[in-house]
C-alpha cells in the first residue's frame, strides 16, 4: 500500500495543517509517512501546497510527481495540479471556490462545498477538516478516530474549544461521500 497526496489552496486555508494531521494519523496507525510543504516568500493569501506520502514500506521519495489524490481548495490549485494526477486517481474540489470541472475523464472528481459546510457549522476555517473528511471517507486511508486524536494533538491548549467543531467538520466531510 502506498498513497501519494497533494493538498493545495490559498495560504490561510489550513492546507499545511490538513496535511500534517493526515500524516500524523497515518503515523499513529503504524505507517511510514512523509510531509513536504511548499515554502517560499508567500504568506497568507498566496498559494500553499503540501505533499503527503503514506506507505507500508520505507518511502523512497517524499517528492510527488503524479499523486493518487489531489485536494484542491481553490481554482488555481485545481488548474496547477490536476494534470499531474495519476490516471484513475481522485480529485477532491472545494466547490465553493471552484466554478469549473477539470477536463479529464480518467479521474474521479468529487465536488464538495467545504467552505459552505464549514460556514454552516459556524467557522469557515474548518473547511480543511471537511475536505480531509471527504478524503478519508473516500479512500479509507486512516480511521476517523485516529484523525480525531491527531486533531487533538495539533490543537494547542488554548484552542481546545475548537475540538468539537473540527470533529463535526471531519464527520460532515465523511458523510458527504458516504451518503
Amino acid at each position: 500500500m502506498k498513497m501519494e497526496i497533494i493538498m493545495a489552496g490559498f495560504g490561510g486555508q489550513g492546507i499545511m495543517l490538513m496535511g500534517e494531521i493526515l500524516a500524523h494519523s497515518a503515523m499513529l496507525e503504524g505507517r511510514e509517512v512523509s510531509w513536504i510543504p511548499s515554502y517560499g516568500p508567500e504568506m497568507r493569501g498566496g498559494t500553499a501546497n503540501c505533499m503527503v506520502v503514506i506507505s507500508d514500506k520505507r518511502i523512497p521519495s517524499p517528492i510527488i510527481s503524479s499523486p493518487d489524490v489531489l485536494v484542491a481548495m481553490n481554482k488555481p490549485s485545481m488548474e496547477k495540479f490536476t494534470p499531474m494526477v495519476k490516471s484513475g486517481g481522485i480529485v477532491i474540489l472545494n466547490k465553493a471556490l471552484i466554478d469549473e470541472r477539470p477536463a479529464r475523464d480518467d479521474i474521479k472528481v468529487i465536488e464538495v462545498d467545504a467552505t459552505g459546510i464549514a460556514d454552516e457549522l459556524g467557522n469557515m476555517r474548518v473547511a480543511n477538516m471537511v475536505a480531509l473528511g471527504v478524503l478519508i471517507g473516500e479512500t479509507g486511508i486512516v480511521k476517523p478516530e485516529t484523525v480525531i486524536k491527531s486533531i487533538d494533538y495539533f490543537l494547542p491548549a488554548h484552542r481546545k474549544n475548537m475540538m468539537e467543531i473540527n470533529e463535526k467538520a471531519l464527520k460532515r466531510g465523511i458523510a458527504e461521500v458516504q451518503k
Binding site: E20, A23, E32, V33, S34, W35, I36, P37, Y39, P62
Partner: peptide, 10 residues
C-alpha cells in the same frame, strides 16, 4: 538542503 530542513517525517 531546503527540503530536508522543511519536510516532516516520524
Amino acid at each position: 538542503d531546503g527540503i530536508l530542513g522543511q519536510m516532516m517525517e516520524p
